[in-house]
Computed example of a mutant assay.
Amino acid sequence: MSTRSCPAAVAARIVVLATKVKIRYAGSSTFAPSTIVQAQWTAERRQRERFVCEQPPYSLLVRGVEADVLPTCETYRMGVLAWSPPAGGRLSGRWHRDAADLSSHRTRTMPFRTTSAHYDLDIPGNQAKLDAATELAGIADDAGYSAAVLSDPKHRRRAVVR
Rank of each mutant, 00 (worst) to 15 (best):
R106C: 08
L61K: 04
E135I: 14
Q38L: 10
S29K: 09
M110Q: 14
W83F: 09
A99C: 02
R63M: 10
E66V: 04
M78V: 03
R108M: 06
S29A: 09
V10Q: 02
L70S: 08
V21S: 03
R46C: 15
S34D: 07
A39L: 00
R24Q: 11
Y76D: 01
W95C: 07
P71W: 03
H155N: 05
V15H: 09
G144K: 08
V62Q: 12
A100G: 04
R162H: 11
I36F: 01
A39M: 00
L102H: 09
A12V: 13
V149L: 12
D152C: 09
F31S: 09
L91A: 00
C6P: 00
R106A: 10
R24I: 13
R48Q: 14
P86F: 05
V37C: 05
I14E: 05
R48H: 12
A67Q: 13
Q127N: 06
E66R: 12
N126H: 02
L150R: 05
T72V: 09
R48G: 08
A32P: 02
A18W: 02
M78P: 01
T115I: 15
P111E: 11
L17N: 10
T30V: 15
A39P: 01
V16K: 08
E66Q: 02
A140Q: 02
A128G: 09
A117C: 03
A159F: 08
R46Y: 13
S92K: 06
S103A: 08
A99S: 07
I139V: 14
P71S: 03
A67M: 08
A140V: 07
W41R: 15
P56A: 00
D142V: 08
D101S: 01
R158G: 03
E49Y: 13
D131Q: 06
D122A: 12
S34M: 10
E49L: 15
H105I: 07
K154T: 15
D68H: 08
Q38A: 11
T109D: 05
A12W: 08
Q47D: 11
Q40R: 07
D98P: 10
S92T: 12
V52N: 02
Y58K: 10
T107H: 07
Y119K: 08
A39N: 04
S146Q: 14
A18I: 11
G64Y: 13
L91R: 00
